[in-house]
């Protein structure tokens, strides 16, 4: 199935793209997706501890499962003021 992934801030820098389309196995979880993306974009691994996820514009944890056409966002907390 195909899903859309958006990246923000440090995560966008790590991937070098603002938005990508990903082909992934049916019923995969967000953790599966992160693992797959970390293989392709190793810098994502360094951000793992403070990576925040959303699924279809809703905050989500790594165990959430995706379906065809879903939109995932991957972002960090920001520190600066």
């Amino acid at each position: 199935m195909k899903i859309k992934v958006k990246f923000f801030s440090s995560h966008r820098d790590a991937v070098g793209e603002k938005e990508i389309e990903v082909e992934i196995k049916e019923n995969s979880s967000l953790n599966d997706l992160l693992e797959m993306l970390s293989e392709k974009y190793p810098k994502l691994k360094e951000l793992k501890d403070y990576t925040v996820l959303s699924l279809n514009h809703r905050y989500a944890d790594g165990n959430s499962r995706m379906k065809e056409g879903d939109e995932v966002a991957i972002f960090p907390p920001l520190e600066g003021g």
């Binding site: 440090s10 501890d49 403070y50 925040v52 905050y59 960090p76 907390p77 920001l78 520190e79 600066g80």
Partner: peptide, 14 residues
């Protein structure tokens, strides 16, 4: 609730 873990502390470009 949303950010249980902080990003590493550094001087942020802004």
């Amino acid at each position: 609730c949303i950010f249980p873990n902080p990003p590493p502390h550094k001087k942020t470009p802004i």
